[in-house]
Design a protein around this nucleic acid. Structure first.
Lengths: 216, 216, 216, 216
DNA sequence: CATGAATGAGAGTTCATTCAT
DNA sequence: AATGAATGAACTCTCATTCAT
């Protein structure tokens, strides 16, 4: 296999021409990525032909393979994009002992997850619907991603228990419950026509529900 | 195309021969369905070739199309099987005012959902992983199925509020939360090697968590 | 890769139908082989498209892959056919001490090589022109094949020296010379329009030349 | 298509600048030819991509087409180079009645053929392996080339007969035999790792064998 | 009813060549 | 003159489905 390097970085030693070329190249790459995201999220991975992507991106067949090794590869890249984005959002939360009040922290985690997905419905659809069951590598990525979110929630709950705000419930299982709620909400959102939803409010609802339970 | 009727019913005018033939026919059908379920749940829909199914079922290529219209059709039928089964389980719950105590009712709903899936991991995998994003018809079926479960949970919560056991929380959103928790747990279960899990206990945990919340 | 078994043997347990089917299958296989041989020898390996073969054989695209794993594979099989045929012809020669007179033996070796190629010009063209430089596996096959012929010639020459009919010349090098002559003649024959050539006579000429040298 | 002139000659009206440019141009051409020869002889014509050549020559894609019309064209040019070189070597032999002794003349022809090939194994590999069966034009060139060598050998043999040194053998057929021997030896040499072979000695062997025959 | 050989549309990918910069 | 991104025709191979036996 000739490795069509998915290289975005401009080569070093850049005179003006090289830099400009590299920028144009990166732009083109992004154009294709965007186009691919659109068709993938609309038709699904298997229903999408490379022909669909290149048509959407208005490029020639060969050009596609200039920027990506395969249909498989561009999908992986799109997937990585979202997962990374969510990671970045969640990473920033300070869970130290002197940080913000516990409830606010937990709220922050949930909210950021929702925000990361709302920013791009198409990418979210990719993660929640199209990437499921595609291949083992993807499954592992998704599992790792879920595990990451689960980890943050678990940590938050544990901290909450340490400072006496959370009752002696299994933090792990509970974290999965919360995550499940969030994912279910995301699916709902995806199926709704508009993003008229106030995710801030939704986060509140989820958290309130999770913290209070439903019992009177 | 509907030439190959997926007909299980014995033809009318049943002398013994016809009846026996019909029974054999039904058995054969079931054999193929079982085989298809095995390979679908193991390899996923797209990775499964008709060749895999007929090999697993030990039938000839043509025979497959004698019983099912297409690869697509047999998958739909399998999907219907599970959804129906869950429906049956959930349908039976008495939510009338004089029925069992509220908490037990809700517990019953959750437990039956879990049980329905546990009975056949393969079918569950189909619903939760392979059926996602296959085509619009399937998506609608899954949505309808989820809506059904959601409906029962909502109803239970509403009843609970009527008899003063549930605080004034939005029953619909809360029902989605519970359903999300359940689905997340199912996914966990699927990824674990054994069904050593005690679903009775799990149901308790989920419900307890949902009812109590996590707050001390 | 799904191994499309290049199976010619009828499956065991043959009732009449199975046997007949197997025979038909073998016939079809042969039809495709013949067609492939024609186009390969006419247009060369690389200029031949699978489309050419299936057109020549009057079969569908898929049918080709029912009988052969790839374009590569069918070429290998054709190549093996000729090499085996030559092997068979040459193998039968008795080089024992009490065998036929030496000159007749050597003549026999040369003649049989020529005959094996004459029997099918197309196959010969394959070996001498198209198979060269295709891939390493093929190159090894051809080298082994040449080595085989060379071995027989060397053995004959050695025997000739033992019984005092051959002067003390290096048998190995000389065998290569003879083989080179033969191959050159074969190439000539291939380039000529007709097989009007009397290979018996040609063998005589080659051998006479090789034995006598050109010096007066 | 002949747009990209494979022009080596400096343009007329040569001031210093033009001459210098032309020289540089010729050098560049040669660089590419050398690179192409290396990869062609190593990987074979079909396994060689234009990408391989330009990488080996360290030039840009477009530059290649500035100097050569096509991959096809550069191969033809390389082929011509060797054939011309052999021609030059062989042309110089004086076959006149007052020339060197006959045996020496014949030896000279053979030796020069070998030398021409030894000078560049890569070129030899091209002629003997890669050029075979590529296209009709090439085949004709190779045939013409062989015919040329054959002609010289035939002429030498005829002269030899005229001066009573060669027995009344068919000069044409015999010339093919000799040529075949030589080609076989060349092939052997190519397959050996080193050019440790003493071609002078080899020429002697071939000729001695051809002149003497093998008979005691 | 059962079979499995035959079908052919359609997929992803390659690579020699062009052309705007 | 030199570049290298862009092109798109052409390739091999797959696999759901059909149909003669």
């Amino acid at each position: 296999m000739t490795t069509a390097q998915a290289n975005t970085d401009p080569k070093p030693g850049g005179d003006g021409r090289t830099v400009r070329a590299a920028r144009k190249r990166a732009q083109r790459r992004q154009t294709v990525l965007d186009a691919a995201l659109r068709v993938f999220s609309e038709k699904g991975y298997h229903q999408t032909r490379v022909a669909d992507i290149i048509e959407e991106a208005s490029i020639a067949r060969g050009t596609f393979y200039l920027y990506f090794d395969s249909k498989h590869a561009i999908f992986h890249e799109l997937l990585d994009m979202l997962l990374e984005r969510v990671d970045e959002n969640v990473e920033g939360i300070d869970l130290g002992p002197d940080a913000a009040p516990f409830r606010d922290q937990l709220l922050e985690v949930v909210k950021r997850i929702l925000i990361a997905f709302r920013e791009d419905r198409a990418l979210a659809k990719l993660v929640l619907r199209e990437a499921v069951g595609l291949d083992e590598e993807i499954d592992e990525k998704l599992n790792a991603f879920n595990a990451q979110l689960h980890g943050w929630l678990t940590l938050s709950l544990t901290r909450g228990q340490e400072i006496g705000l959370i009752r002696p419930i299994d933090p792990e299982l509970t974290a999965w419950c919360i995550l499940g709620s969030v994912r279910q909400f995301l699916q709902l959102v995806l199926d709704r026509p508009d993003d008229e939803l106030d995710l801030d409010h939704l986060s509140e609802v989820i958290l309130d529900y999770n913290l209070q339970g439903v019992r009177l």
